[in-house]
Amino acid sequence: MNIFRLTGDLSHLAAIIILLLKIWKSRSCAGISGKSQILFAIVFTTRYLDLLSTFISLYNSCMKVIYIGCAYATVYMIYMKFRATYDGNHDSFRVEFLVVPVGGLAVLINHDFSFMEILWTFSIYLESVAILPQLFMISKTGEAETITTHYLFCLGLYRALYIFNWVWRFYFEGFFDLIAIVAGVVQTILYCDFFYLYVTKVLKGKKLSLPA
């Protein structure tokens, strides 16, 4: 464990909690892409199946349970509890265009052609594009609530910090996982234009609105 991975995990946890509280407190999921949240629930489910088989540390197991629990709670609130506030018209990204190629790639390029390993690889590839429906929805509505931009910032920051974690582990431990690194770089790149808008607008107190 190193500082980049710890702050990365905490940033990820912060994002998940921010979103959960935003929906719970405002009793509304307006501006939130339910499709992205479903993809994240799939990412955690396929990646954390080893919860039952491999014990790495108390921290590792606790965080996995928290991530999975929050992900499903968020999906439940979007599609059940507050479904009246779900903006389905703007959440129109075709997720099959993500899941199918990612599934095919996970079968073709992986570390080991075993069931668990292919699921893990699928989860890594899917996570790198899971935010696209959310970013697409913001581009369609042309704006995002400020709390939603903080959620996205923490979510994008988490994988950016993981990149520093991988540099650290390569340098100090000689460890590197090319699949996770490539997917993590792609994932972070997808946030770049959002990061630019976040820094130039939201941090200056303005609302995030895209030129429609």
């Binding site: 991975r5 995990d9 990820h12 990646r47 080893d50 491999t54 790495i56 590792n60 965080m63 996995k64 991530y67 570390h111 080991d112 075993s114 668990m116 390993e117 893990w120 993981y162 974690n165 996982d177 090319l178 699949i179 996770a180």
Partner: peptide
């Protein structure tokens, strides 16, 4: 690719 299937990261 040499197997690295013990994933200790979240």
């Amino acid at each position: 690719v040499i197997g690295r299937t013990q994933h200790d990261e979240l």
